[in-house]
Amino acid sequence: MEAFLISTGIVALAEMGDKTQLLALVLAARFRKPWPIVFGILVATIANHAMAGALGAWVNTLISPQAMRWILGISFIAMAVWMLIPDKLDDDDTDNKPPRFGVFGTTVFVFFLAEMGDKTQIATVMLAARYDAYLWVVAGTTLGMMLANAPVVWLGSRVTKLVPLRVVHIVSALIFVVLGGLALLLPA
């Protein structure tokens, strides 16, 4: 249960102001069909985070606990630094072509691609490597993504204006520093 709760919290915080959250806002403004967008985000996130979690679980079988402790500690601290760098949408992410695969298909496709190499995907790999609970980590990171993105789709920019993103980024960075420090200081 710890893996689920930590995964949910970390990814929900990491997603605030992230490129994929901005993409969710753009999709909602462009298509104005929240349900297919939310379901598309869910499907893309499950697929993406299942792959990331599998990678993390696999890496955990290859590396000694001592080496994993150092890799995770340094990775979490690097994630803290990354949290302090705000994301922006690329111009390519907001083209005005009509959706070829419908709102749902378009959302799945663009959200899956935007999530590749993103903070939350890398966090999923690290969490799955840290905890021996693949399904709980993937379920938690997926819930964290949905907690951060579904309200944006339904409520639009009002949600992002209520939350001071800089404060959320700083708190998230501090959480990653604490996790990194604990990984480095506590025995495996």
Rank of each mutant, 00 (worst) to 15 (best):
F101M: 12
P187H: 11
A24T: 05
M1A: 14
I122L: 15
T107Q: 01
V43H: 08
E115F: 00
G105Q: 11
W154T: 12
L84E: 08
L22V: 13
M146Q: 06
A3C: 06
K161R: 15
A67I: 07
W35G: 06
D92M: 09
L135K: 11
P151G: 03
A14R: 04
W70E: 06
D87L: 06
E115C: 08
V59I: 15
I46A: 14
P65H: 10
Y131V: 12
M126G: 02
R166Q: 02
F31L: 13
A24V: 04
Q21T: 05
A14C: 08
R166H: 02
M1R: 06
G140Q: 07
G140P: 03
I71K: 00
W58G: 13
W35S: 11
A114F: 10
G53D: 13
L27R: 04
Q21Y: 07
F101C: 06
I37Y: 01
E15R: 01
R30V: 04
A173W: 01
G156T: 09
T94C: 09
G144T: 00
N60F: 00
Y134A: 02
I175Y: 08
F112W: 10
V103S: 12
D93E: 13
I122R: 10
P99T: 15
R158W: 08
P99C: 14
L147Q: 07
E15S: 11
H49G: 15
I170K: 09
A80D: 06
L13V: 03
T107H: 01
W70H: 11
F76I: 03
F104I: 07
I122Y: 10
F4K: 13
L23M: 11
T106G: 12
L127N: 07
V43R: 10
D92E: 15
G144W: 00
A148Y: 13
E115M: 05
M146A: 08
V178F: 12
G180Y: 09
G102W: 04
M126L: 15
K33Q: 15
G9C: 05
T120R: 03
S75V: 00
G53I: 05
V168E: 03
V138N: 12
L155I: 05
L184P: 12
M16P: 10
A14K: 04
F101G: 04
P164F: 02
L127K: 08
V138W: 00
